[in-house]
């Protein structure tokens, strides 16, 4: 995995070439400014009419620089989406099930692709087994308004994909102790 600083160099290089045809002919942000911008963005935009301008003032940059940098992070894939992050529990999606499966390694990609085709599955990941305590290697997340609906959806998946003999477990959440955006920024300061 590349370090933050080499990533930043990479970003800056891309940024430089893109700038030539970019309408924002902005100066590049320094490593410290990038770091600070990231920390501020991780906490969310301020709720003012010109949020990017307000952020730009905090990092001693121009609004155009801030906008160009965010666009750049999106193009680069560091930012996978930019927008509202909502708390699903508060919207009534209280039945949140993590369904874990023990799928033979040679079949896991194929089963994961089938799960991913189900609209009720919002996330699907492969993770390592930790034997003897944890035999499961495929995780999928289902958010629903009601426990019985989610259980019925899981039954339907088992039926549809003939997974009756597959070892699995369903872990409903019953309390959210913390739900916030990732804070990568803080520790990375020394890398800047």
């Amino acid at each position: 995995m590349s370090s933050l600083s080499s990533q930043q160099q990479h970003l800056q290089e891309n940024h430089r070439t893109e700038n030539m045809q970019n309408e924002f002919t902005a100066e590049l942000l320094s490593a410290n400014q990038l770091q600070k911008l990231r920390e501020i963005l991780e906490c969310g935009l301020p709720h003012v009419a010109q949020p990017y301008l307000a952020i730009a003032e905090k990092v001693s940059a121009t609004e155009a620089q801030v906008l160009a940098q965010i666009e750049h992070w999106q193009t680069d894939g560091l930012v996978k989406r930019f927008g509202l992050v909502v708390k699903h529990r508060q919207l009534g999606y209280k039945a949140n099930a993590m369904v874990v499966w023990n799928i033979a390694d040679e079949h896991v990609d194929r089963v994961a692709a089938m799960f991913s085709s189900c609209p009720e599955v919002s996330l699907c990941y492969r993770r390592p087994r930790r034997l003897p305590h944890w035999p499961y290697n495929l995780f999928c997340m289902i958010h629903g308004t009601d426990r019985s609906i989610v259980l019925a959806q899981i039954d339907a998946m088992v039926e549809k994909f003939s997974l009756q003999d597959i070892e699995k477990d369903i872990l409903f959440s019953f309390k959210a102790y913390k739900q916030q955006g990732a804070r990568y920024g803080k520790k990375g300061l020394t890398n800047g």
Binding site: M1, L4, Q7, L41, E42, C43, G44, L45, H47, P51, I70, W73, D76, G77, L78, V79, K80, R81, F82, G83, L84, V85, V86, K87, Q90, L91, Q179, Q180, G181, A182, Y184, G188
Partner: peptide
Amino acid sequence: ILKLDDAGILSRIGPVFNHKKAGSS
């Protein structure tokens, strides 16, 4: 937006980082 924030529905408006690229998780 302010109302959604007050009601606890809105966590924030901003980027969701790609964990693999953004660091270790």
